[in-house]
Structure formats: structure tokens, C-alpha cells
């Protein structure tokens, strides 16, 4: 029982420590493609979260039944099923959303994050832990997408979630809502986190000793 993580650990793993976008850098296709606005990012993130959680749950339930020779085929069939479910559901909820996300909904099936988690985690974990972990990963993915989408929307259209921030005289930085903008913002965030990690180690290593003494 040493290495069995608690449910809380399962859930929080993907939220920040191993964030799929900024740490594992998985699923870059939707990350760069649909993040032109915060609302697109959130809906794409939630759609992926649903697919991830549902597929990981089913993979985990069926894990003793699926022989290793046919596991990839089975996982892809399961993932494709839930992608189709999301596809139908979004058409029923909002056609505008469906138009905005376009082909990227169907492409969730090829998002390596989903297959990666099914293969690396859900296939070895009981359903509860696998689902919690997948929900955490999905929300971490949503958070990452929204952080990129928010910045791109603010700079590229001068709005956030459709609310105008700078008034009518704002000159939009159009490149930010074009494909290169995705790379710029993604690179910017990665750079920021790299710098932060470097300084965090410096800051945390010295004062921690002091605080031990102080306490």
C-alpha cells in the first residue's frame, strides 16, 4: 500500500504538478488551434475532460477483460465513442459552439493526452482513481487552454469572454488570433514557468532552512 496514491492525489496530479499543457506538453493540436478566445478554450477543455473521464472510466472497468494484444484498438474504439457522444451533445446544445470548434471536436480522438492517460494510467488503476485522475487531468488541460486562450483573446480582440476591455479605440493585435499567436503565447507561458521554477528553487531552498531554525 506504499505507492497507492490517495483519491485527492489522483485528482490533483493533473491540475498543476503534471499539468498536461505546461508540464507534459500533450495534446498540442487543440491547444494551439482552438484557443483564439477564452470561451472556445473552456468549451474545448470541458469537452476533452468529458471524453477523458468517460474513456478512462470505461477502460478501467474493462481493464481485466482487454488482452494486451488488442488494447490500443479497444481504447481507440472507446475514445472514439465518447468523442461521438460529445459531438452529438454539442450539436444539441449550441450550433454556434459547434461551428466555432469545428473539426477539433472530432480530433479529440487523436489527442494523445486521452490515449496516453488511458494507456499509462487508467489501464492499471481501479475505476474510481482512474476517473478522478482523468477529471483532474481534464481540468488541468482546460486551465492550460484557458490561460492561453484568455491571453490571445485579450491581445487579439481586446475582449475577455466577449466583454470589451479597452473600449472602441483598441487596435487589435491580429496575429494573436492567427495560428502563430498560439505558438507565441504558449512559448511565453512556458518561458514564464521555467523562470519561475528556477527562482522558486532558489527562493525556497534558502528561506526554508531559516524557517526551520526560526520555528
Amino acid at each position: 500500500m506504499i505507492n497507492v496514491p490517495s483519491n485527492w492525489q489522483e485528482f490533483t496530479e493533473g491540475l498543476w504538478e503534471r499539468n498536461p499543457v505546461f508540464v507534459m506538453v500533450l495534446g498540442m493540436c487543440p491547444t494551439l488551434a482552438v484557443t483564439v478566445s477564452a470561451i472556445n478554450s473552456i468549451s474545448m477543455g470541458l469537452a476533452t475532460t468529458f471524453v477523458l473521464a468517460a474513456s478512462c472510466w470505461l477502460v478501467s472497468v474493462l481493464r481485466h477483460l482487454i488482452p494486451k494484444e488488442v488494447r490500443i484498438a479497444s481504447y481507440i474504439a472507446i475514445i472514439a465513442t465518447f468523442v461521438t457522444v460529445v459531438d452529438y451533445a454539442i450539436q444539441a446544445i449550441s450550433l454556434e459552439m459547434y461551428e466555432a470548434l469545428g473539426a477539433y471536436i472530432q480530433l479529440i480522438v487523436a489527442n494523445c493526452l486521452v490515449l496516453g492517460r488511458a494507456e499509462a494510467h487508467a489501464a492499471k488503476t481501479p475505476p474510481l482513481g482512474a476517473t478522478l485522475n482523468a477529471v483532474g487531468m481534464g481540468l488541468g488541460f482546460t486551465l492550460g487552454l484557458t490561460m492561453i486562450g484568455g491571453v490571445r483573446e485579450i491581445l487579439g480582440s481586446g475582449t475577455l469572454l466577449g466583454v470589451s476591455l479597452f473600449g472602441p479605440n483598441f487596435q487589435p493585435w491580429v496575429v494573436m488570433v492567427l495560428p502563430p499567436g498560439g505558438f507565441f503565447v504558449m512559448g511565453g507561458w512556458l518561458l514564464l514557468f521555467a523562470i519561475w521554477r528556477k527562482y522558486r528553487d532558489k527562493i525556497l531552498s534558502t528561506p526554508e532552512k531559516e524557517s526551520v531554525h526560526g520555528a
Binding site: L58, L62, L65, I66, P67, V70, A73, S74, A77, I78, A80, T81, F82, T84, V85, Y88, A89, Q91, A92
Partner: peptide, 20 residues
């Protein structure tokens, strides 16, 4: 295994289609 996976998936897809 493949038969069970396909059957489960098929039921889920058809069910969602009918619902939505």
C-alpha cells in the same frame, strides 16, 4: 474483448444519437 468493447460502444453511440 473486441466484441464486448464494440457492443458497449455501439449502444452508447446509438443511445446518444436518439437522445440528442
Amino acid at each position: 474483448a473486441l466484441g464486448i468493447v464494440s457492443a458497449v460502444c455501439g449502444v452508447i453511440i446509438v443511445g446518444t444519437y436518439q437522445l440528442t
